[in-house]
Design a protein around this nucleic acid. Structure first.
Length: 189
DNA sequence: AGCGGGATTTTCT
DNA sequence: GAAAATCCCGCTT
């Protein structure tokens, strides 16, 4: 079994820390952008903060679908955020990507974002804009172009910080946020 | 440096 | 009708 499937078929809170350090490869307008995931949060249907908590709706349908697909949601009337659906299938689980670090194509990301430096991708709505992700990408299979997820070998435990999630009112107690310790693109340490 | 409002979709009360 | 897994801008200390 590939690393992709064996990681993502697990529950979100187990898959999430293993996605730190993974590479996202985006092809858009003939350009290639590559970034590294540096901050994630886990959500599932047992979790009051999750969109899937209150059951399956047209919007959350993707979360209950196949692991390894992309769940994009529109929020606050202005912003897109993207998640990686995890398993087991039909559990309404996903990992929110909160921050990424540019590796390649940073100049083109700046064109999409109209911002530079840390501001390129140190937050969930920011990185979606920098990668040109919108609702047309909802349900996309992350093994396929133009957006691929490439999972790397797991980071050492001392490179990862685990803490509580950000920007939610319910379920604040669950320590379901992970980030790469000391990485400058992390939205809030 | 820090607070407060605005933008405006999907869902629930 | 209001709140939400957010960000940005303008105003005040």
């Amino acid at each position: 079994m590939s690393a992709f499937a064996s990681v993502l078929e697990q529950p979100a809170y187990i898959a999430a820390p293993q996605l730190l350090g993974a590479i996202l490869e985006r092809e858009i307008s003939g350009q290639v952008i590559r970034v590294r995931i540096v901050e994630v949060e886990a959500y599932d249907e047992t979790d009051a903060a999750s969109h899937s908590y209150k059951g399956r709706t047209p919007r959350t349908d993707i979360m209950f679908g196949e692991p390894g697909h992309l769940y994009v949601y529109f929020t606050y009337g202005m912003h897109y955020c993207c998640n990686i659906v995890t398993g087991p299938e039909d559990t309404g689980a996903a990992v929110l990507i909160r921050a990424v670090e540019p590796i390649e194509g940073e100049a083109f990301m700046q064109d999409l974002r109209k911002q530079a430096g840390i501001e390129l991708s140190n937050g969930p709505a920011k990185l979606c804009q920098a990668l040109g992700i919108d609702k047309n990408m909802n349900g996309h299979d992350l093994t396929q172009a133009p957006l691929k997820l490439i999972i790397q070998s797991p980071l050492k435990k001392n490179e990862i910080t685990q803490t509580q999630r950000i920007g939610i009112s319910q379920g604040k107690d669950a320590p379901w946020r992970w980030y790469i310790t000391g990485n400058p693109y992390v939205s809030k340490p």
